[in-house]
Design a protein around this nucleic acid. Structure first.
Lengths: 118, 118
DNA sequence: GAATTTTTTTAGAATTATTCTAAAAAATGT
DNA sequence: ACATTTTTTAGAATAATTCTAAAAAAATTC
């Protein structure tokens, strides 16, 4: 665990939003000015492999990284594009029953119109 | 409706798989050798806007285009990476009940291990 | 149906996101 | 501390996508 990797993990955990690789790079540079963008990418891959964070990809957006590795629903407002998280207890089991075979995980993005954009 | 757009739409509809922009470009060139890659992109954007096709993005994969605009589940094998479609009747309603507010659409990718890769 | 206007296409440059490479630096094991 | 392994850095390379300006095609108007 290098100081670069620790910093990236901390930034992801402290953030209220999902951050892109470049956003993390910009934030990381403030604390560790010499850090390279490739280091951010390397560590994001590694942290995701180790299960510390989760890579998320939405249609039309740059890949982001989520501190929560517990499955949950991503709510996307079609008006302003804001992304929020929503718990999804029991959805794994529900999905397995529906499909009739065991599953490893799922990614669920729900598009709606948030109260502000109504 | 230009012949380029018609061709791209036909190729998507005739394909059994989801195709990337570049795959479509390669296929389209066989029938219309002078077609430009930008034309493929322009028309994919347009066709998706018009609701003729659907753009799909999976974590780590290049964007693909789906002939079916009816919501369905994408099954992704974690072994071989193969993507297949699965119907999802009633899932929209189920999801709305779970969330407690109306939704526009959803994207659901389920990761599993296919029989071959077991 | 020719002239005009609008839309689309083409070719290539530009941009964005990401990955690769090779040398330097840091961390780890002895 | 010395050797080995891993990680980082800087910058080049690649991949996917978008932009731009001119040419071509399609649609509209007279």
């Amino acid at each position: 665990m290098t100081k670069q990797r620790a910093l990236i993990l901390r930034l992801i955990r402290e953030s209220k939003r999902h951050l892109t690789a470049d956003e993390l790079y910009q934030l990381a540079k403030k604390e560790l000015p010499g850090i390279a963008l490739a280091t951010v990418y390397n560590n994001l891959i590694r942290l995701a492999e180790e299960g510390e964070i989760k890579k998320i990809t939405f249609c039309g957006h740059t890949d982001c990284y989520d501190k929560s590795i517990i499955p949950h629903i991503h709510l996307i407002c079609d008006g302003c594009g804001a992304v929020s998280d929503h718990p999804s207890e029991g959805l794994m089991e529900e999905m397995q029953q529906r499909l009739g075979f065991p599953i490893n995980e799922y990614e669920l993005a729900v598009h709606y119109t948030c109260p502000k954009c109504q």
